[in-house]
Deep mutational scan, measured.
Amino acid sequence: WKITIYDQENFQGKRMEFTSSCPNVSERSFDNVRSLKVESGAWIGYEHTSFCGQQFILERGEYPRWDAWSGSNAYHIERLMSFRPICSA
């Protein structure tokens, strides 16, 4: 599993790669995730830290803005603060 997060939209700004769970992006000096690329595996992104709040399934691909992973939710969530890989047995 591999995911790359960015602190600006369209894959700009600070970037960081992960191959395992991140319970709080702010502990990695990110205020928020504004864009991301899922390089391999599937991940679950969460609205809040500690894997809480609205969940987003993140499959392999590029997500240049928050609405790319938020989709058409009843209330739009511009925040992604934690994530972890989906492990299959």
Rank of each mutant, 00 (worst) to 15 (best):
G41H: 03
T49F: 05
W66E: 08
S40M: 07
Q54L: 08
F56C: 15
R79I: 05
K14I: 07
Q54V: 12
Y75C: 13
S88T: 13
E59H: 10
D7K: 03
W69Y: 08
C87H: 15
I5S: 01
L58Y: 04
S72Q: 11
T49D: 11
W43K: 01
S29I: 05
R84K: 15
G53H: 01
S26L: 11
S20G: 12
M16E: 12
S88E: 12
S40W: 06
S82Q: 03
W66R: 12
C22F: 04
I44V: 11
V25T: 06
T19Q: 08
E62I: 10
G13Y: 00
S88P: 14
Y75H: 11
F56S: 12
S70C: 12
W43A: 01
H76T: 10
F30G: 03
V33D: 02
V38I: 06
N73K: 15
R84E: 13
G53F: 01
I86D: 13
W1P: 06
R60K: 12
I77M: 14
S29G: 06
E78N: 13
T49Y: 10
A89S: 15
E59K: 15
E17D: 11
S26W: 06
Q8R: 10
L58M: 09
W69D: 06
I44H: 12
S35L: 00
Y6E: 01
Q54E: 15
N32H: 14
T49C: 06
S26G: 09
V25D: 06
Y6R: 00
K14R: 13
R34V: 04
P64A: 11
L36E: 07
F11E: 01
D31I: 09
R79G: 10
N32D: 09
S35E: 00
S88V: 07
Y63V: 05
H76Y: 09
V33Q: 01
D7Y: 02
A89R: 11
V33N: 00
G53A: 01
I57S: 07
G45E: 00
I77Y: 15
Y63P: 02
L80F: 08
F11R: 00
G45D: 01
N24R: 04
I3F: 04
C22W: 03
N32A: 11
V25Y: 04
V25A: 05
R15S: 14
Q55S: 14
D7S: 10
E59M: 08
S21M: 10
V25H: 06
R84F: 04
S72F: 09
D7M: 04
I5K: 00
E27I: 05
W43C: 03
K2V: 05
W69K: 07
Q8Y: 04
L80S: 03
E78H: 15
C22G: 00
